[in-house]
Design a protein around this nucleic acid. Sequence first.
DNA 1: CTGTTAGCGCCTTCAT
DNA 2: ATGAAGGCGCTAACAG
Lengths: 356, 356
Amino acid sequence: MCRQNPGRDGNMSLRQIAQSLGVSITTVSRALAGYSDVSAATRERVVAEAHRIRYVPNEVARRLQRGRADGIGFIVPGGARGFDDRYFLNMVEGAWWRLAGTEVDLLVLSSDQGPTEALTYRRIVEGGRVDGLLVPRIRESDSRIDYLCEVGFPFIAFGAEPSHPKAYAYVDIDTEAATAEAMRHLADLGHRSVALLSSDEALVFARSREAAFLKAAAGLGITTTILCGKLAEASGFALMSELLARPDRPTAAISITDRIGIGAVRAVREHGLTVGPDMSIITFGDNPVVAFMHPPMTAISIPVQAMTAHAVDYLLARRERPDAPLTRLWKTELVVRESTAAPRGRGMASDLPLAV
Amino acid sequence: MCRQNPGRDGNMSLRQIAQSLGVSITTVSRALAGYSDVSAATRERVVAEAHRIRYVPNEVARRLQRGRADGIGFIVPGGARGFDDRYFLNMVEGAWWRLAGTEVDLLVLSSDQGPTEALTYRRIVEGGRVDGLLVPRIRESDSRIDYLCEVGFPFIAFGAEPSHPKAYAYVDIDTEAATAEAMRHLADLGHRSVALLSSDEALVFARSREAAFLKAAAGLGITTTILCGKLAEASGFALMSELLARPDRPTAAISITDRIGIGAVRAVREHGLTVGPDMSIITFGDNPVVAFMHPPMTAISIPVQAMTAHAVDYLLARRERPDAPLTRLWKTELVVRESTAAPRGRGMASDLPLAV
DNA sequence: CTGTTAGCGCCTTCAT
DNA sequence: ATGAAGGCGCTAACAG
């Protein structure tokens, strides 16, 4: 016959309670579930006994029976690079926070970006390990989205692919508003030429921030430069170094992630320049450390935790109602600190012919 | 009867394959599991059909049957404060990294630190959701440890409680060696009075770093000060501010976490002093950002990812062999950057009467 | 080599 | 108000 469940000492199951009380398992189950069609006396005895033997239901069995995973998956992309950004921590934290105290687990899953990615997704989705998925860092023409849409599995994308044929659920920041506010701030300080430090990877959020940057700059009559690298401090360092070497260099830069911004600040300092007067820097993200850098960084604060918690809410709600409401676009806040200043040798904003 | 499993379109089960091929479910199961006692022809047909209907096994059912969760849990402590440290990200990353490509899931679980904590642990352990647990931030007289030891559930503690009656599996850094090396570095620079910025919470690692600090200082004849706050930047700021206000203030400080160190650096700067000559700072941790701060911080680099990955290895191995090997103590590395320097108005190390 | 049988622990009809 | 029976999907033991 089958071996006993090996991982546990005794069998703390419903059967045990049923046997010591001389009732059926069914009754025990019902009493514990709080059904009203159990006599009060019986319920009391069952509950007492359950408490006595410290009964804890087996979640796995329960999940099999209910056909529900009671889990939300967060997929960390990219096998090699991995969990590279504090941003992911904030997402994990937001999801974790929302799930604390519930019976729903947070699964941190990985997927490589190669040919096996599709299989990985199938195993996660069709293997029944989760009820919903958080999918960050959406790529252009993202096959993961296609798959999830096709099988109708509940998921939330972080950032949307603008031209995707199917509408799918996503959360994102209001990139245009965020960028416009940041550019306005720079223009007010007197900057006339601004760079964007971006990534050349096929990431939707990078493209979207670039587009918003160009649009805002056009509106303000600001000269633009876009430099692309990777999403890492070292790349921010390299990009900024390249920018500083230019004779007609911009006086300010916006970086599309905190990590790039951190590297950029360091490059400015190592070139013997002062962040702010010599080169103003604004970063998308605003993870806690940028406020503690020198100088404290002006940042477009993205409410990652709140967005993720809300996304989890949506996924949980969708288990019952397919039309659960979802807040798609989130407002950011420009937190002005000391990495932005009027450019050296420039007048104040009021002197400038701003094309507004 | 029971409803159909609601979460899935069709029933991609073994039964489906069995029926279309006219063989038993058992045979299909065996063929897919790669057992040798299946005829090659049958196996081939089964595999082909499984591929055709894109069969993916149901993990939940498999887990129930095998009596195994195929999951490792990482418990994030403290409901209110939460996932407050980059350190946790590194742990999650280490565990995630090790688990990538396996069929074992990483569950990020939460537990409050109140009266319900015990129940939370019971639900996780006895509910069969994980095969093993990573338990960070061990407290003094930690009831979680008592419980896990009592039921014999596989777990790894991060940091050990020195006086616990039962030996249990843990990983930790070699705190004494790490601290001695840092203090030696400060002594070599000419520092004669050093502070430790610590936490007054009942955390084993804080006590352990304090003890190592006092021991190393005694060996070097260095004057000591210990200030205790919380584990946050703001606390580091407050502690350092307090230190700077002292007339006979130390010339250097070691902070027990990166977050405290980051706050401390900022306090030094805001008091118009220079980190290094006016106040040298070394921090335990060395998360990636401290190298990008100004000045780049000298740090005791803790190999968190490697430690966690190894802990996961151990938990996985323990599922088969109860005597799986475990590396308990890990070497740290002192990464000297620019936050440590000779104190102002002091000679070089060679001039000093060091009690070695 | 293959099929039958019997569960893993829980929950839910259906019958009493 | 309670019990018996069946099944979620998979796998192991025991026969042939």
